[in-house]
């Protein structure tokens, strides 16, 4: 870097701005634009058959938190909304934890293979991205359903004598979610572990650390950025996920994604749907801000 001849500062800055202009325009128009429309819609009145009426109203926001009982008119907390939001948050957190538990050993295993093997295994990890999420979810469905591959096999070898009900259970949802989002955890973790200097581990053992201490005091602090990045990458889409919980969980309980979908479809309450989307967005953004803060702090320290 030192050999590059410095240009006059103003000129560099102007050309940088010019060069980034297409990206900036695209980001403003295509990314923030729709979000603004959503924000505006959340302050309008719902049309009778969907869509919105251009009249200012805070009813949608009011309805996010409070609801008037449809039968006796009393005002209560909108506990249905809170229940649904909490279910999604819980699912996203559980998925993240499962993904770490499965993803960390996987990433560690890959990172400690020979370079050729590593490439091959990374390639295997990315294979699921070749097909659509829906198809992958249906594939899982095909394996765990009552007359699916797994149950037929267990019946055939005689371990069970009636199919186990796996599909439409919470376990099925966790299984599916972990499977779907696992690559997003493995890849950043792998990148972090790959940079990890294995000699540090030897040093730890030399200093009488046991395996657990070596993992906790030496490995984890160093791969933490990868762990955090993976967790964020898993948590955010998992929060909005609704295809997987619906297909594998049986759809008896809504996720926040289904609930927003309901408002734009059969519910015909677009403003409420928009308000709920904004809330989801705020949720995700605050997670990201926390992440950025965290990463900045840890890089400052070390």
């Amino acid at each position: 870097m030192a050999t590059v001849k410095p240009k006059p500062a103003a000129k560099t800055e102007r050309s940088t701005w010019l060069l980034t202009a297409p990206a900036l325009v695209l980001l403003t128009v295509a990314a923030t634009g729709p979000l603004f429309i959503m924000l505006i819609y959340s302050f309008l009145e719902p049309g009778q058959y969907g869509n919105v009426v251009w009249k200012f109203s805070t009813k949608a926001w009011f309805n996010v938190i409070l609801q008037r009982d449809i039968f006796d008119g009393t005002l209560t907390w909108a506990d249905a909304h809170l229940t649904i939001l909490w279910r999604s948050v819980k699912l996203a957190m559980t998925t993240t934890v499962f993904a770490v538990l499965v993803g960390f050993p996987t990433a560690w295993f890959i990172a400690t293979r020979t370079p050729r093997m590593r490439l091959f295994m990374l390639f295997l990890i990315t294979i699921p991205f070749w097909t659509n999420l829906l198809i992958r979810t249906f594939a899982i469905n095909q394996i765990i359903r009552n007359e699916g591959v797994l149950n037929s096999f267990l019946l055939w070898i005689g371990v069970i004598d009636a199919p186990i009900q796996i599909i439409y259970s919470d376990f099925a949802v966790f299984l599916g979610m972990t499977y779907v989002y696992l690559p997003l955890m493995v890849l950043p973790l792998y990148a972090a572990i790959d940079r990890f200097d294995m000699r540090l581990l030897e040093a730890a053992y030399d200093l009488y650390a046991n395996r657990w201490q070596a993992l906790r005091r030496v490995v984890l602090p160093i791969v933490k950025p990868g762990l955090i990045a993976g967790s964020i990458l898993v948590f955010i889409p998992a929060l909005g996920a609704y295809v997987t919980p619906r297909i594998l969980g049986g759809g008896r309980n809504m996720m926040i994604g289904n609930f927003i979908d309901l408002q734009f479809g059969q519910g015909r309450n677009w403003p409420l749907g928009a308000a709920l989307s904004v809330i989801l967005l705020i949720f995700v953004t605050s997670m990201l801000i926390l992440y950025v803060r965290f990463v900045n702090r840890s890089t400052d320290n070390g």
Partner: peptide, 17 residues
């Protein structure tokens, strides 16, 4: 009607919450 639809959605939300 819009009113009936509102009732429907409220019940549906309660059912699937």
């Amino acid at each position: 009607s819009a009113k009936a639809q509102e009732y429907y959605t409220a019940i549906w939300t309660e059912l699937l919450k």
